[in-house]
Design a protein around this nucleic acid. Structure first.
Length: 306
DNA sequence: AAGTCCTGCAACCGCACCTGT
DNA sequence: GACAGGTGCGGTTGCAGGACT
């Protein structure tokens, strides 16, 4: 007997999610927690396959997600990590806890890749660029704070070299990642208050927006929207709000096994290099949680630089 | 103003891997 | 150890909205 498809092709809804569906999914996860995706469409009225539910949650509804408006610092991190790790978006996303792998992947494909191509073209004509010339790749914080300057300069050289490396080729050795991390020591990880205060708005905004849309689309709700919203939104993610620890990277607030997968990335479960990377990442997050203070949301700037 | 092209993003698909039996 | 089910990841696609002619 063959393995049944992940979801019946018949009767499964595809395409954009409606606010109503989002609410059903959020409500279910709020009650049962993320995971066990197979049971989600079974136990809800959602006519979606489990994968679709998981994707919707992890990429859009999940707590603590920040959307759009990538900062120059995030740009730099993504560019550099992409050069080091290749297209391991999940691994890269683990350094940016408030970004999803899909978001980063899209951003890379639509923005950063073009920037880099442009830069390469310019570099071919004007190489080497004068040090004072503003970089097309905005790696460092706008203030050009000294704390990131060290990271910045090597970013450029290393990245340039690395861009020639096919994305699918062998990722950079873990020690190269370590070096990068050591140079920059950026606040990759969100701190507690970072994640649990203002960025909450990201998730809350997501839900609020969809609720607003839902209310707008529901003629019977009208002015009741503002009254209903809080009760529905109130504790979208009961698992994180009161927790004291740093938000695990990219996890769905799930137990360690999935975190581990998120850290090691796709296909890296038994890859020694990536296992090493995983420990580096753990260290990174621990250290960052201790040292870094909050700033504007995701990639916070150390207080000393403010 | 209308039509076409381009861009960005959400979502889907297929494969790889893990886990439990 | 083999197998089946469940989950995660990366690549790709399709659509909506903006830009351009």
């Amino acid at each position: 007997m063959g393995r049944p498809p992940c979801c019946d092709k018949v009767g499964i809804k595809k395409g954009p999610w409606t606010p109503e569906e989002d609410i059903v999914l959020v409500s279910y996860i709020q009650e049962h927690g993320p995971g066990n995706w197979r049971s989600v469409p079974i136990n809800t009225s959602l006519m979606r396959c489990s994968k679709s539910c998981r994707l919707r949650w992890t990429n859009y509804l999940r707590h603590g997600i920040r959307r759009g408006n990538f900062t120059p610092h995030e740009d730099g991190i993504i560019v550099h990590l992409q050069s080091l790790l290749g297209n391991r978006w999940a691994a890269i996303a683990s350094y940016l806890p408030q970004r999803t792998d899909n978001d980063i992947k899209n951003y890379w494909n639509t923005h950063l890749k073009k920037k880099l191509q442009k830069q390469q073209a310019i570099g071919a004509i004007f190489a080497p660029p004068p040090p004072s010339e503003p970089s097309i790749i905005p790696v460092a914080v706008p203030t050009a704070a000294a704390g990131y300057a060290d990271c910045h300069h090597d970013d450029m050289t290393l990245s340039k070299d690395s861009y020639a490396r096919p994305a699918s080729s062998t990722p950079a050795p873990a020690d190269e990642v370590t070096q990068f991390i050591g140079q920059c020591s950026p606040p990759f990880a969100a701190t507690n208050s970072d994640t649990f205060s203002s960025p909450d708005a990201s998730s809350m905004d997501n839900i609020s927006k969809l609720l607003n849309g839902f209310m707008k689309s529901s003629p019977t709700q009208d002015d009741a929207a503002t009254n209903i919203k809080p009760s529905l939104v109130i504790d979208i993610n009961p698992y994180d709000h009161k927790s004291g620890g740093a938000l695990p990277p990219i996890s769905d607030d799930v137990p360690p096994p999935q975190q581990q997968q998120a850290l090691t990335g796709h296909g890296g479960y038994h890859n020694p290099k990536l296992q090493q990377l995983s420990s580096i990442e753990k260290w990174l997050f621990d250290e960052a949680a201790e040292q870094m203070e909050i700033s504007d949301g995701c990639c916070s700037v150390p207080s000393m630089l403010l």
